[in-house]
Nucleic acid binder design. Sequence first.
DNA 1: CGGAGACGCGCG
DNA 2: AAAGCGCGCGTCTCCG
Length: 565
Amino acid sequence: MRIALVPGRGPAGLLARLRDDGTPYGPPDQVPDLAEAVAAAERAGDVRWVWQSTQLLYPALLKAAVRVARCHDTELAGSLLATRDSPVRPQSAFAAVSPSAASRPMELPFEPGSDALADQRREMAALIGTHADQLRRISADTDPARFGLLVAAESAGGLAAAEMSAAGLPWRADIHDRLLTELLGPRPPAAAGSQLRPARLAELAADISRALGAVRPVNPDSPAQLLRALAASGIRVRSTRSAELRQVDHPVISLLLQYKELARLHAANGWSWLDSWVADGRFRPEYVVGGVVSGRWASRGGGALQIPKLLRKAVVADPGWVLVVADAAQLEPRVLAALAGDSAFARAANADDLYSAVAAAIGADRAKAKVALLSAMYGGTGGDRGQSLALLRRRFPDASAFVESAARAGQEGRVVRSVLGRACPPPSAAWRTLTSEAADPEQQRDPAAAAAARSRGRFTRNFVVQASAADWALVLLALLRIRLAAITSAAAGGAAALGGGAAGRPQLVFFQHDEVIVHCPASLAAEVAAAIGMAATGATQLVFGATAVSFPMTIAVVSCYADAK
DNA sequence: CGGAGACGCGCG
DNA sequence: AAAGCGCGCGTCTCCG
């Protein structure tokens, strides 16, 4: 059963029950308390809520302790459809499919004097129209079942993201502060201004200036200044990147590398980060579902997906609780094996360590095999990896052909799609102009055009793998959410006994591309770990069908995130 | 003064 | 050890 939902003023709102094709059974019902009505419908049975934006609507429901099982988010679905249907080559014989009027975002014209209820009714009509149109466009896909799964999983991801933001990642500010103090020195007084360097950084900066024999203090935070000072000491580097500095033999280098590492910690995850992002023992980032073109999530504020490994020491479960940390081992090469249906590669992928198996197959050491494999997926060239790449091509012809074909499509300006049908963006007008000139024999050697074509080839080559891995991880997350909710109800008696509504409930608290963290009472850890395993199996089945490739999860039950690995 | 872009580096 | 792909974000620097 689908129910369309439009919020009103205050707690009220409109609900409209929909048929399977998205048409309403009748005029919408006005309900005085939306959260209550949603909770009642969830209790009564299987509902898929149809609404414009989980990100806007769901946090208020969560605040009222109302969770929903499923939804169709028309913004997320619309964005998937818009990319799929974007015209690729207007000059081609194929007519570009343009999104129909009904699928445009709902922006209602301002009408002076219109009352709130009339606005809501218009909004409901637009929502119902958009949704029905999206259902039609999904069913018109070349693979409606898979694309429909993607839309459902994306919507489920929206729910999971809101729930994770609400729950928050357990974060011990005291541990974080102690780490900072150990590494940087005491926190500089706020009154002195935020420009003041912590003691350890100030020492290092002074040591650096001295080691460079500089007359005036060198600011290591300024690449231009540092580059000049290095040149004055006879150190010739093109940039001040750590990687490049490491090649240089000079006493200043180790000081600079230490400075950079600590300065980065201070700037990105120092005391001001702690003040801004951690409250009540929780780090609550905002996830942006589908924020990356490949379908990976992005985050807004707090750099949630770039937390340095060092700070995992501050992520500690509540007393009596544990963190179940799970990550998909070597996900992307396994995804490639499944995508390409490469039986030799699938055999390698069934080993515990895929890279060792690949190394054995091509007669190289593990490190070389890993580099060659990453190069094949990322489009790396040059260096001494040509030989290993050639061996890969011979041993795993189907997997090689798969990524090569994706790269060719990209270079030719075509669009590629993930296993569930997420489309990559079409080339920009500027790219088409540039590369079509290159097709002209006169201009064929235009290096900029050739570089642009190769660059897009690398992008699409990687897209098919990264986006399909994101599909798999998203489906896993969607399945895990549902399974965790079942554990919740089973444990509800115990939770009620403790007198807390959510007291004993396992909570998804982190998701980072191929890794999830569940925070749960220690007694439920085994059940949660089993749920993760089943979600992974289910995701493999739904996304890849009957594949020979296995997708093992590494699962650790720990009280501190730093102990998982 | 704020915006834009380069740089650099954290994560997968 | 780094590179080939994808991001967010802080600092510096230039520009209007």
